[in-house]
């Protein structure tokens, strides 16, 4: 089964110096090693790290139309920081990987089963 591991972290607390600080460099290094471990295990299907939430732009859709805003979609303490897509036998295996996933200080990893891709052509 394919799962997305969605990483949520309190960005400002975890990376006080933004993406130029030591904390940021450390987490990038940790993710590089983690990605390699997943690659070696043959479970990784895809993924992406996201830049600082300060760089986010949101298009809000409502009955009156679509408007553009500065910032991430919700002003919560934890924000989406990146995701991995993995292919593993079951939820327990996905949980094992999520438990190993690098997190700078605190945060959460949401595990969501992925829909099958739409038919091609």
């Amino acid at each position: 089964m394919q799962y997305a591991l969605l990483i949520h972290e309190p960005h400002a607390e975890s990376y006080p110096d933004g993406d130029s600080g030591q904390a940021w460099r450390d987490i990038i290094a940790a993710h590089t090693a983690f990605g390699q471990e997943m690659g070696a295990a043959g479970v990784i299907v895809g993924g992406a790290g996201l830049k600082n939430p300060d760089t986010a732009t949101t298009v809000r859709v409502s009955a009156s139309g679509r408007t553009v805003h500065d910032g991430p979609f919700a002003e919560t303490r934890e924000q989406l920081g990146g995701l991995y897509m993995i292919d593993v036998p079951d939820l327990d295996a996905a949980i094992e990987w999520a438990k190993k996933l690098p997190i700078a200080k605190t945060g959460s990893i949401e595990i969501r089963p992925m829909l099958p891709p739409p038919p091609q052509g």
Partner: peptide, 14 residues
Amino acid sequence: AEAGVPYDVPSPDR
């Protein structure tokens, strides 16, 4: 069913 909970007795480490 949808989240893929395994139908197994967990391994000793879990």
